[in-house]
Design a protein around this nucleic acid. Structure first.
Lengths: 347, 347
DNA sequence: TTACGGTACGTAAGCGGTTACTCAAATACT
DNA sequence: AGTATTTGAGTAACCGCTTACGTACCGTAA
C-alpha cells in the first residue's frame, strides 16, 4: 500500500510500547488520557494509518463484508432489470459504511461463480448474496467458510439467514385491489420464468387473493414470460389468442412485462384500465413514465440490502444466534393502469 | 475469517516447504510439474485457501481497488440522478473482477469524506473516485498514499490520472445537429450549476458549434438551472420571460432539466419540435419514455468505470508512467424532441 | 504494616504468508 | 571430463499489528 510509518515508529517516538499504541488506536482502555494524547499526536504527526492487512491478520477480522450479485450479461444502458441490483448495492453499502465496515462487491457472471466467490471469501468476514448469484451447492460450500446472508429469494436453503420482500403479500394486495376497488373478477396472470422463486411467490399471492374473494383460481400460471418487455408482450399475445374475450385485468409478474403488455393492448385497440386493467411488479423508474402510468408493487430493495448487511453484522457478532429471517413489506403503488384516477399517479 | 488449514499443514502434508507451496500457488515457476500436482492435490484435499490478509501483508498488495462516489442523500426509489453512479459502479466492478481484483465501494456522505476515504485507503491498492466525492484537498491528501484515478470531471487536479466523457464534443454535436439537420439558428442554452465543470464544458461545446456555423454565440449562459426538473422548468420560464418570441430550440444542460422544460412548453402551448426543439444530456432512462421522446447525448458511464479501473491497474503496475488522460466519446441519441422522425426513437 | 486488587504499561509470541538467499543436483557447454 | 548454468527446493527473516501474560506501582482495607 505505501511505505509509510509503522506502529514501531509511533511507539518509539511517543516513548511507549507498540502494545500501548495499538490499544490507544482501538481499545479505548488500559491507558491514561495523557498517554493517549501523546500517542495520538505522534501518530497524526507521522501521518500514520494502521496497516489493514497486518491488523486483520493479527485480529482475524477483515472489517470487510462482501456482496455477491448476478450479472445479467451485457445489458445496455437502458436496461431496467439491472436497476434493482443497484438499489441493493446502495443499501448494502450504506449499512456497511455506517457500521464502519467496508463493502466489496462482485458480480457472478454465469459460470465461474464459485471461483469468484472463493476469491472474495478470502477477503471478507462475511457475505450477503443476492438470489441467483450462485448455485445452491456453491452457496453451501461458501457458507461453510464464512457467514452468509441470502437476499431476495424466498427459498432460503441450508438454514442461512435470509432477508427478502413479501412478494406473495404484494401480489395478493394488488390482486385484491383489482377485485375490491375496481370490481374486477376476470383477472389473468402473466408469470415470469418457471424457475423464478419470485415469480412463483407472486403467483401464489395472486391466487390467494382470488381464492379469498371466492373467485375461481387457476392452479398454475396460464402463460409465462421471461421478465422482459418482449417476453411480456409475447405472453400476453398468447394469452389473448387463447381466449375469445380478453380478461378484464392482467396482473403481470413484473413491470417490464407489463410495459410490453401495454404495447400489445394498444395494438389490439384495447383501452388500458377501461377495458383491461394492467398491473406490474417492482416499480421500476419507467413505471411512472409510461402512459398510462403503471400500477405496481414496490419492493424495498434498498432496505433489503441494508437489512441484509445488518443481519450479517449481527451474525458476525454472534455466530450461534438463531437463524434470522426477515420479510420486508412491499408497497402497493396505485397509478392509472389499474383504473385508479390520474391524480396522485404522476409523481 | 476461518480456522482452517494453513500453508504449514499443506507444506507438511505434501512434504515440501512453505516456500514451494507458496510458489505453486501463484508464481508458476521454480518447481516441477509433479511437485505442483502433489501440492495442489493436498491443498484441495485440505480445502486450503490462502489467507488473504497474510498474503497482502507479506506482499504489500491487497488485490483490492476502491471506488469512491458521492451519495446524494436520501434519493427516493425514483431518483434518476443516482443512476449514472450505478453504471459507473457496474463498469468498475466488471473491470476489476475480470482483472482478478476485488472492488470495494464507499459513498462519501457529505462531511466525513476524508475519514471514510482514510479507512478505505488502508484496504486497497488504489482508488478510482467519482467527481464530487471528495474535496480537492482531501483528494490531494489521499493521493499521496495510494494511486488515484479521477472520473467524470474535466478538471483533473494534481496531475492525477483521469477518465471522463467528451461533454464538450457531445454538446457540440447535438447543437450542430439542430443547426444542420433542422435548419435552426436561434438556439438557447439552459446551463446547469455555475460551478459544475460538466455544465461548463457543455456550454463550451454548444458555443463552439454555433461559432463553427457562423452564428452568434453568447459568451456565457443566458440562464442557469440546478440539474433538476423543477430547476430546468424555472430556468426556461426565466428565459422565455426575457424574450418576446421563444427560441426555435433549447439545448438543456441535462435530461432532467429538459424534461422540466417540456412541461413548461406544454403549459405555454408551444409545440415541442415543431415550434421549439428540445435536447437534453445524459440519456437517463426516462428520456425515451417522455413524450415527445427526448433527443440527448449518452455518456458511457459504464465505460468510464471500466476504463478508470483499467487505468488504475496500469498505474499500479507502473507508478512512474506518464499521467494518463482518457476522454471517452459521447453518443448523440436522436429521438423526437429535436424534430427527428418518430421512428427509431421508441427503443 | 501487610496483603491485595486495580491500573498502566511493556514483552514478545504469534497471525499466515512471501521472498531474498542458499545450495545441491541436473543439464548444458567447451 | 571439467566447468558453467539452470532448475528445484529449503531456510528463515520479515510484513505490521494484536494480545495473552507479566510486572511495577499505587491506593486501600484489614
Amino acid at each position: 500500500m505505501n511505505d509509510k510509518a509503522t506502529i514501531y515508529e509511533v511507539a518509539r517516538m511517543s516513548g511507549f510500547s507498540t502494545a500501548t499504541v495499538s490499544r490507544v488506536m482501538h481499545d479505548g482502555t488500559g491507558f491514561s488520557a495523557t498517554t493517549r494524547d501523546s500517542v495520538l499526536q505522534v501518530a497524526a504527526q507521522l501521518g500514520w494509518v494502521p496497516n489493514h492487512s497486518a491488523r486483520s491478520l493479527a485480529s482475524r477480522r477483515a472489517g470487510i463484508v462482501g456482496l455477491l450479485f448476478p450479472d445479467f450479461g451485457e445489458d445496455g444502458p437502458g436496461s431496467e432489470s439491472a436497476l434493482y441490483v443497484d438499489q441493493v448495492i446502495r443499501g448494502a453499502e450504506r449499512a456497511a459504511t455506517l457500521a464502519g465496515d467496508a463493502i466489496l462487491i462482485a458480480a457472478t457472471r454465469g459460470h465461474g461463480g464459485l471461483e469468484l466467490a472463493r476469491s472474495v471469501v478470502g477477503k471478507v468476514d462475511g457475505l450477503v448474496v443476492l438470489a441467483g448469484s450462485l448455485a445452491a451447492k456453491d452457496l453451501a460450500a461458501i457458507s461453510t467458510r464464512v457467514p452468509v446472508v441470502l437476499m431476495a429469494t424466498h427459498t432460503a436453503p441450508h438454514g442461512l439467514d435470509f432477508v427478502g420482500a413479501d412478494n406473495r403479500g404484494g401480489a395478493a394486495a394488488i390482486t385484491a385491489h383489482l377485485i375490491s376497488a375496481h370490481r374486477i373478477k376476470d383477472i389473468a396472470f402473466v408469470a415470469g420464468p418457471r424457475r423464478s422463486p419470485d415469480s412463483r411467490e407472486r403467483f401464489v399471492g395472486y391466487r390467494q387473493a382470488l381464492v379469498a374473494a371466492g373467485l375461481q383460481a387457476p392452479a398454475s400460471p396460464e402463460v409465462h414470460g421471461d421478465f422482459t418487455e418482449s417476453g411480456g408482450a409475447e405472453a400476453l399475445e398468447t394469452l389473448l389468442a387463447g381466449r375469445r374475450t380478453p380478461p378484464r385485468a392482467v396482473v403481470f409478474g413484473n413491470d417490464e412485462m407489463a410495459i410490453g403488455g401495454l404495447a400489445v393492448l394498444r395494438r389490439h385497440k384495447l383501452r388500458v384500465a377501461a377495458e383491461v386493467a394492467v398491473t406490474g411488479f417492482d416499480d421500476i423508474a419507467t413505471a411512472r413514465h409510461v402512459r398510462p402510468t403503471l400500477t405496481t408493487v414496490r419492493q424495498p430493495m434498498r432496505d433489503i440490502g441494508e437489512t441484509a448487511v445488518g443481519t450479517l453484522l449481527a451474525r458476525l457478532a454472534d455466530r450461534s444466534a438463531p437463524r434470522q429471517t426477515t420479510v420486508l413489506p412491499t408497497d402497493l403503488v396505485l397509478r392509472t393502469s389499474c383504473g385508479c384516477s390520474t391524480r396522485g399517479g404522476s409523481k
